[in-house]
């Protein structure tokens, strides 16, 4: 008798929770999948962040993309792991634009090379002091990076939420049309 009631109770509760779609078991399995993917591939947050930045740089050379909505994730089925990249495209760039960007990049590289060369000369000229300052700047760079990655992740989270809201809205619109 007791079992019948517990069963009924679970079914009723289960029915209402399934309606919601954000039941904790769905959240749990999604979180776990993501974490396991990172564990299995040995890719940490920092590396993923770096990869994301590089990918954005290369892709936006040719296509104007919504950088904030770019979604980079590891997904897996069974033993295979795939890197899923979802990029909302705003528009393709024209040939002239691509050339202009490439030119700008080349110039940037050239400038960097020139700067490096200058710095090397300076370093050779002066004593140990410059090395120390270099170390300091490196340290501060590292801490800067760490903060950046944390912030951008938070941003990414809020973006996800926004996206979800948007999709919800479009779904609602569809319903209205019907």
């Amino acid at each position: 008798m007791k079992d019948i009631f517990t069963n009924l109770y679970n079914k009723v509760i289960g029915f209402f929770q399934a309606e919601k779609g954000d039941s904790s078991k769905v959240i749990a399995s999604n979180r776990l999948k993501l974490v396991l993917m990172h564990d299995r591939t040995n890719l940490d947050t920092l590396t993923m962040q770096k990869m994301r930045e590089q990918l954005i740089k290369v892709i936006s050379r040719y296509i104007e993309i919504d950088q904030e909505a770019l979604d980079l994730n590891l997904e897996g089925e069974g033993d295979a792991i795939a890197l899923m990249l979802n990029i909302p495209v705003i528009r393709a760039r024209t040939l002239e634009e691509i050339e202009a960007i490439e030119k700008a990049e080349e110039e940037e590289l050239a400038q960097k090379a020139a700067k490096d060369a200058e710095e090397q000369e300076d370093a050779e000229g002066s004593s140990d002091e410059s090395e120390e300052t270099e170390k300091n700047t490196k340290d501060s760079d590292e801490s800067g990076n760490a903060e950046e990655s944390v912030i951008s992740e938070e941003e990414a989270n809020t973006e996800e939420n926004l996206q979800n809201e948007e999709t919800n809205e479009t779904e609602k619109q569809k319903v209205k049309k019907k």
């Binding site: 979180r31 776990l32 993501l34 974490v35 940490d44 947050t45 920092l46 590292e142 801490s143 760490a146 990655s149 944390v150 992740e153 989270n157």
Partner: peptide, 25 residues
Amino acid sequence: LLLGLENRIVYTLVDVVEERCKLKQ
């Protein structure tokens, strides 16, 4: 995982011990 912070971890205890970052980071 229990704290829901799995996506925010950049450095770990081992990174601190092996001096890849400062403790506060």
